[in-house]
Structures are given as C-alpha cells and as structure tokens.
C-alpha cells in the first residue's frame, strides 16, 4: 500500500510535468499542422538557458522565465526559418516530420557541443518533504504540480475566453475559412509558436528540476511520452493532452511499483495502442 501511494505521488508529479509539455505540443500541432519532433530538443536547450541564469546567481524560477522566453523565441525562429519555407513549397506532412527530426539532431548536438557530455543540476533547495502514508513529495514538487494546474487553467482561459484563443481555434479548425472571416492567420500561427515555445521552455525547466540532473539528451525518451500523451488524448486536443498526460504519468509510475521499472514506458504504449484500436481519434477526438 505504501509503495502504491508513493507511486501515485510520483505519477502525479510526472503527469504535471508531462501535461505542461503535452499541451504546448498539441496546441502548436493543432494550429500549425507541424508534428514538431524538435520539441524535446528545444525543451532541453531552454533548460540549459535556465541553468545559465541560475549559475549567474539568480533563482531557478527566474531562470524558468528566461527559458520560457528563449523557448518562445527559438520556436518562432524554428518556424520562420525552417518549417514555413517548406510549407510554402507545399511539402508533405511526412517531409516536415523528417525536417523536424533533423532539427532535433541539430539542436541536441549543438547543445552538446556547447555544454559537453557533462550533466548538470540547478542550484536550488528541494524544500521540506511532506509525508502522508506512503506518499512523499517535496515542496518543489508541490510547486511543480501547482504550476502545472496554473498553466492548464491559463490555457483553458486563453482558448475559451479570449479573442486570441478563439482565433487560434478557428485557425486550427479551418485556416482558409478563418482567413476569409478576417482572422490574420499568419499572425495567429506565429503567436501559437511563441506560446507553445514558452510552454516548451517551462516544461524543459520543470523536467530538469524534477529530474535533479540533466544533460543534452535528457528529453529523448520524454518526447516519446509527450507523443503518447498527445495521441492518447487526441492530437490537437488541449484537454485530451491534459488527460493523456495524467493517464500516462500515473500508469508509468504505478506500474513501475509492480513490474520491472525498466518496462514502465512500455505500459504507456500498451495503453496507447489499446486506446487507438478502440478510439482511433484518441480519448477526446471523437467529440469534435
């Protein structure tokens, strides 16, 4: 029972980190039609920006803001400089997937060329540990959970109640029609890249905080979990990504308590495959 509660706690934290990343990923995918596999590499690049700020003596939370800004700027640059020219030429979606894979390698190896193979940690305190039954979480992990909830609420508010959010939804649903209705879709696409990049930067920093130590390749497997959460929830579904993140996060950590932990990520994909077999559009996709 204690191990179950402990795993439940770990799962909630993993889900919190995953949710921030997955929502950013799916939001960008929905509006821009680019399956951006470089997302994980940008996450880690942003985490290193936060590390640089942290090493300069600032709080890691300030570093996270810098990472968000860097993630936003980097993602906009990635779209403007790389993806948009391919889209203008009418490249097939699979071509853009390969391009994004290439960008993953370029960014990841670029980061490794700068920081080397060494792994680093933020200078920060984890704060006191709270114990309840078998559940054990540090103050920082509570902050991460709180931050994730705040981000989810923010994304909900943005999409549901703001003009920008409605324009994003319209662009995602039908770009031509949205343009004909007077929505400046090109600008919406750029703003979406910036927003998803900011979430990417935040996700990279909280991943690095949560892991305790990170290097240039630390997001490799995490990207696969992001994809699992996104496709489990239904690609392009912000709330689906949130639900997918919770399911994947809890399933991986709780299963690890009862099977060899090395196989915990396999469990995530078994769930995903079953889900895709039953509901091909994902958890929330069929509602549209």
């Amino acid at each position: 029972m204690n191990l179950f509660l402990a795993s439940l706690g770990f799962g909630i934290v993993t889900a919190a980190v995953l949710a921030i990343a997955a929502v950013g990923f799916t939001m960008q995918f929905a509006v821009t039609d680019v399956l951006n596999l470089a997302y994980g590499a940008v996450m880690i690049a942003a985490a290193f920006i936060a590390y640089a700020v942290n090493q300069a003596g600032a709080s890691v939370w300030l570093g996270m803001l810098a990472a968000a800004a860097a993630g936003a700027a980097g993602s906009v640059a990635l779209n403007t400089g790389i993806y948009t020219p391919f889209q203008r030429r009418g490249s097939a979606p699979i071509t853009l997937v390969i391009v994004s894979l290439g960008m993953t390698l370029i960014i990841e190896f670029g980061v490794q060329a700068i920081v080397g193979g060494t792994n680093v940690s933020y200078t920060m305190s984890q704060g006191p540990t709270v114990r309840a039954g078998g559940l054990e979480l540090t103050a920082v992990q509570f902050v991460i959970i709180g931050l994730s909830i705040a981000v989810m609420a923010g994304v909900h508010g943005l999409l549901r109640y703001t003009k920008l959010g409605k324009a994003m939804r319209a662009t995602a649903a039908n770009r031509s029609l949205a343009r004909n209705c007077g929505i400046r879709t090109a600008r919406i696409v750029t703003v979406t890249w910036a927003l998803s990049g900011a979430l990417c930067g935040i996700a990279g920093t909280v991943l690095a905080i949560n892991d305790g130590s990170f290097g240039a390749t630390s997001a490799d497997l995490f990207l696969v979990l992001i994809l699992a959460a996104v496709f489990l929830g239904g690609p392009g579904q912000a709330y689906g990504a949130m639900a997918g993140a919770v399911i994947i996060g809890l399933a991986t950590e709780i299963s690890a308590a009862y099977i060899t932990p090395s196989y915990k990520d396999v469990v995530a994909f078994v769930i995903l495959l079953v889900m895709l077999a039953i509901r091909p559009a994902g958890l929330l996709g069929a509602r549209a």
């Binding site: 909900h156 392009g236 579904q237 709330y239």
Partner: peptide, 9 residues
Amino acid sequence: MLTTLRRTN
C-alpha cells in the same frame, strides 16, 4: 463541453 482545437473527423 471541452474546448477543441482540431477537428479529428
């Protein structure tokens, strides 16, 4: 109803 960003039809 949850907000939907993309049609998955």
